[in-house]
Structure formats: structure tokens, C-alpha cells
Design a protein around this nucleic acid. Structure first.
Lengths: 152, 152
DNA sequence: GGCAATTAGATTGTGTGCAATATAAATCGG
DNA sequence: CCGATTTATATTGCACACAATCTAATTGCC
């Protein structure tokens, strides 16, 4: 009876999906860390590289839209990637407000070294691909509903 | 056909469950922010308060275990909660290594003001409670499998 | 009992995230 | 075509996260 009450209490930590998501994100980060250390990347830097490996030479804005990050986060991060010789930042000629981000040869080459990362994560997840895909789609749908609320 | 290939490419951003979780965590944070601003709390501080509202007067270690956070994160956070007069930090008499965290009267009182937060989040999720509970359980199971790998 | 190993927190340094603000370039309305 | 607004990025300040290191207290082992 006491147990039944507590499993329904919305103010209990264990009943909050947000904490589940929050703590899962940190768990992923900890699994990624040793893999990304070998590449010399942090996880957010890895995300930026994923964007660029899909489509090179994009404005900061586009990276921000794909990753849901703003310039306050991206500007210093991109400067660090530039200092690591993985990307080049250039003011766009057509629109001087934009800064275009392009991979260097090293940045391109890193894609190969990163190829094994996803399967290591899959192994750590200890879960079938189809289950993961289903979860991913649910989580993305939830995220998009949340983001819709933020825009009012 | 090209579409089929890209939906299978494990190096694509959209195919990564980790990014789904990462971006959902940020989306949650943005929904929580205005609600928690009224309480004068950040989201991690709110998590600590949730722990204390369940069980008061616990060592830092126990908070860390429940939230998967270490002293490097908790020490300054708890000092800020103390500065806000929500908790009191006291060295344990029995074990001088431990610092016990106890709610102040203000800290206790805040629980009432926070009562409406979970339902606001539920509304923003735009999703049935049973669906959310199912997702939460799946995500927690995944998190626990990931954390198991980290311990080797 | 005494010394090594362990444990709990604190500290330092680096890298996000994000709000708020600043700046410069582009666009829009009259 | 000119001033007002909008847009893209940069900057500043604050609060996490976490690795690495440090200190002090406790436990284990002989």
C-alpha cells in the first residue's frame, strides 16, 4: 500500500522521465568518453563532426539548428576544433554575417577513425538494433513535442 | 535507395539513440527552466531537492549515488543551496569524513511550491502517463546496462 | 597498536550549455 | 535610398559535469 502510493507519487525521483533521460545522457557520455578520447574529441565536438561528415562547409547556424545549440556554445567549441586543425572557420563572402565551417583534410580523415564508435556503443547498449531504433524514434518524438511547447 | 542507405548508416546523426537522448535532455531542461526559475532552482539543484524531500539528512555520497554525480559537481552545488538557505551542511559526528545534508524549514516548505512542476512537465510532454511510464522504464533499463559496462 | 589501503569530500582545470548583451551585416518599409 | 528591424555570430557570466589531485578520517591487516 505504501509502495503503491510511492510508485504513483509524481514528485518521486524514480517516477520522473526527465531524470531517466538526464541520467541516461550522462551514462552515454561516460561510455563515449574513452572512445572519443582516442579521437581527441569531446561528445559535443563529436556531434559537430558528425554534422560535417554528412555535409561539409555549412554555416554555424545550420550546425546549431541540427544540434539544438546556440552560438554561445558553438563559437568556443568550433574555435577549439579549429585549434585542433579539424575545421576551418571562414566568413562567408555572400553574407558577411555568416561563418562557414569546413573540414580540413585531417577532419575528413577522422571519419574513418571514428567508424567503429557506433558499434561500440551498440555493444554497450546490450540491446537489439530494432529495440534501439524504436526507442530512439519515441524519444525524438517526445523531444520534438517538448521543443514545440518551448516555441509557445 | 539512397534514402535506404542513409537510414541505415550508423554514423548519421539521426540514427544515433545517444543524440536522441542528449537532445531530449536539453529539451526537458528548457521546459523546466521557467518553472524552476520561480523556485530559484536549477535543474540539478531541483534533483537534489527531490532526493532530500524523499529522505532528509543524508550524506553527500548518497545524493551522489542516486543522481550519478560526484563531489566535484555536488560540493559547489550544495554550497549554493546552502547559500540560498535551503539546506544545511554539517560534518557527521560519527564519521568525520561525511558531510550530512539536511533541509532547512525553507527547504521543506519549497516542496509545496514545487508540487505543480511534474504536471506541467506532463502537459508539455503531450503524451499519456502510461506511455511516459513505459518509456521511462525502457530508458532506465538502458541507462543501467550502460552503467554496468562502465564498471567493466 | 600501527601502518597501508580505502573512503568521503574538497579543489582545480577544462569544456560545455545557456541567458543576456553586443556588434556588424543584411533586409524591410516607407 | 535611408532608418528601423532582423539576423548571424561573438562575448560575458554563471552553473553544471567530470577527470585528476589533495586532504583528512576510517578501516584492514598483521
Amino acid at each position: 500500500m505504501a509502495r503503491k502510493l510511492s510508485t504513483l507519487d509524481p514528485q518521486r525521483l524514480d517516477n520522473q522521465i526527465c531524470f531517466a533521460v538526464y541520467s541516461a545522457a550522462h551514462a552515454f557520455n561516460r561510455v563515449y568518453k574513452p572512445l572519443l578520447d582516442r579521437l581527441g574529441l569531446t561528445y559535443p565536438q563529436y556531434l559537430v563532426m558528425l554534422v560535417l561528415w554528412e555535409r561539409d562547409d555549412v554555416p554555424v547556424k545550420e550546425i546549431g539548428e541540427k544540434l539544438f545549440l546556440d552560438s554561445g556554445t558553438l563559437t568556443p567549441l568550433l574555435k577549439r576544433l579549429e585549434a585542433a586543425h579539424l575545421v576551418k572557420r571562414t566568413r562567408s563572402r555572400e553574407d558577411e554575417r555568416q561563418v562557414m565551417i569546413a573540414l580540413t583534410a585531417q577532419g575528413h580523415a577522422l571519419k574513418e577513425k571514428a567508424r567503429s564508435v557506433p558499434q561500440s556503443i551498440l555493444a554497450a547498449s546490450d540491446c537489439s538494433v530494432s529495440e534501439l531504433v524504436a526507442m530512439k524514434d519515441e524519444i525524438i518524438a517526445l523531444r520534438d513535442r517538448l521543443n514545440a511547447v518551448i516555441g509557445e
